[in-house]
């Protein structure tokens, strides 16, 4: 019997080892598939679906350029987004300049910014609104002002700073409401829920023509450094450089212009660095 057992043991091991090796290979493949995705976090400036529609072509293009799949993600709120940024959950981020100053300590580095178009906040009213100019004397009492999020840099912080400089403090005589996203606050002013909405130009351009046609820009803030795209500092340098070149080259190619059109960034991206945002403050 021992003579008979030996071939069976060999046969058993012969069958078992490939299974073990296969299982190990599968686990390795799983791990590889889990790590090969790059996570592109986008500040929830608009509704998730709208943001996805805007950024999906860019995300796909980045994936092709880097040879790795890229996952588009956003967050329920600015604060949740920043929490994740600080936990370094994203490989690549797109956010406003003010929040970028908070992301820098977490190890993020700005590589490009939205090109040419000045980064400004705008105040929007309905086209048929009696408000023509912003003056403390002409503004009605109990003014209703809407913003997307308290941390929205251009739409909220810059516009509120601008109003404060005009002598229009949003104190007791004003009713301030936050609607969570840029298009929500634009819809709010369009429907008459608020008299004035703080937002920024790309958000207005992304609105449907019918809605956009009913709105009017009543004021524009002084420009600030544009919205950056930053990368986490542990990404390989070559990959970061490939990403930077790809983003800057978008405006030079037809496919890239299509991507920029989806984003609403008609002038594409320009190179930048962390130093460009040193002066940005609340």
């Amino acid at each position: 019997m021992p003579r008979l057992r030996k071939p069976f043991v060999i046969l058993f091991l012969g069958l078992l080892l490939p299974l073990i090796a296969g299982a190990h290979a599968n686990t390795a493949a799983d791990n590889a598939s889990r790590t090969r995705y790059l996570r592109f976090g986008v500040l929830p400036l608009q509704s998730p679906t709208r943001l996805a529609e805007m950024f999906m072509p860019l995300v796909a293009g980045i994936g092709r350029a880097l040879g790795r799949p890229v996952e588009f993600v956003t967050a329920p709120s600015f604060s949740a987004f920043m929490t994740r940024v600080k936990q370094r959950e994203y490989d690549i981020i797109y956010l406003n300049p003010l929040l970028f100053t908070e992301a820098k300590p977490a190890g993020y580095r700005a590589i490009v910014q939205v090109a040419q178009e000045p980064f400004v906040g705008i105040l929007v009213v309905r086209k048929d609104s009696p408000l023509k100019t912003l003056s403390p004397a002409t503004l009605p009492r109990r003014l209703r002002v809407g913003f997307p999020d308290p941390n929205a840099y251009a739409a909220t912080i810059m516009t509120r700073q601008y109003l404060r400089k005009l002598g229009i403090p949003l104190g007791r005589d004003c009713k301030v409401q936050y609607f969570g996203s840029q298009n929500s606050v634009l819809m709010a002013v369009h429907s008459g829920l608020v008299d004035i909405a703080g937002t920024w130009p790309p958000a207005l351009r992304s609105m449907p023509r019918a809605i956009r046609g009913d709105l009017r820009i009543i004021a524009k803030t002084p420009p600030q450094p544009q919205m950056p795209i930053a990368v986490r500092d542990d990404l390989p340098t070559a990959m970061v450089e490939r990403l930077r070149r790809y983003l800057i080259s978008l405006s030079h190619r037809r496919a890239g212009r299509h991507i920029l059109q989806q984003l609403g960034f008609v002038h594409g991206f320009a190179a930048t660095s962390n130093q460009a945002y040193d002066k940005v403050a609340r």
């Binding site: 998730p48 588009f72 993600v73 956003t74 967050a75």
Partner: peptide
């Protein structure tokens, strides 16, 4: 779940 998935809103 579409929006919550995009937001990674695990609670929703």
């Amino acid at each position: 779940s579409t929006n919550a998935l995009l937001e990674e809103d695990l609670g929703s």
